[in-house]
Structures are given as C-alpha cells and as structure tokens.
Amino acid sequence: MTILVSSNNNQRKYWLLAGRIALGIIFLVAAYAKVKPQAGMPWSAGAIKTSLLMFAMQVDSYQLLSSGAVAFVAQTLPFVELILGIWLITGIFVRGSTLITSLLLGGFFAVMVRTYALALEINCGCFGPGEHLGVKTLMRDGALLSLSIAMTVLAFMRKRASRPLPEAQPALEAR
C-alpha cells in the first residue's frame, strides 16, 4: 500500500512540476512583453517607462479603474507576474503559489468576460500591445485558468496524501 500511495503521489508530483513550470514560463513571458521596449527602441529606463505607460493605456481601456488605480496596476502588475513566474518555477511553497496564480488568473478572466459582455473593443494587454480581446483571448485565458486550478487541486491533493495515516489504519493493515 505504501508503494501504491507513493507511486500515486509521484505521478501527481510530476504533473504538478510540468504544470507549474508551464505557468511560470507564461507569467515570465507576460511580464517581459509588458516591460520590453516598444517599436524597436533600445533598452533603457525611458523605454521601459514608455512601455509601462502603453500598458497603462490598455488597462485604462477596460474602463474599470480610476486613474490612480490604473497607474498602480500598470506599474506593479508586470513585476507581480515576474515574481509569480519565478516563484512557480522554484517550487517553494507550491500550494501558495498555485493558489495565488489561480486567484490572479480568475480575476483576469472575470474582467475579460465583463469587457467582452460589454462589447468594448479593446486590446487585451495580456502579452503586450496589439492583441485584440476576443473569443480566442477568452479561450486562452480560460485554458490557463483551468490549468492553474488543476495545479492548485493537485498541490493540495499531494499535501493531503503525504500526511501521516491515522492511528487506526496500521491496525487494519496488520490484519
């Protein structure tokens, strides 16, 4: 029985590893796309600031936040994505990183569904400028959210499976 539980747990471990690395890379790409210099400009503090302002315009086009909140989100979100991407890949406190990822992606998805329902014709802003928010964007973000939720469930299942068995269990096993 110990072998079976261990094999089951190992399989979860590998799926979880693959899933969180995929999510981690996606978050790193998203962060990079938001801060990278636009229009072929060389890397500089000014070029990054321009990119963040372009991202702020995309956040503003959702018509959801006040101007102060737009500036805050635009300046912090790319760095939150960067940290989350690294956190997911390192595998430290996996339940925490997958749960936060699911909450964040759930938030993004809800905002995108609202925007689509309101028929606002805007850029998604997910992976830099130039990506129109449409059905395909919703499909992609829905897929990412599904993956993230699955990874969160796996992370919590793994934790539960690795808990020590209750005292009555060895007695049953002995029979």
């Binding site: 229009a39 072929g40 321009t50 302002l53 101007s67 014709e121 850029n123 130039g130």
Partner: peptide, 17 residues
C-alpha cells in the same frame, strides 16, 4: 517609430504618454 493602442484612453494618461 510607430506605437499602437486600441480602445478609449483618458486624456490624463495620454498626456503622460
């Protein structure tokens, strides 16, 4: 150099840009 964006943008933000 061209920069493109889509959707409504407030004047305050556009001015900063």
């Amino acid at each position: 150099r061209p920069y493109n964006t889509q959707g409504f943008v407030s004047w305050q933000l556009l001015k900063q840009f």
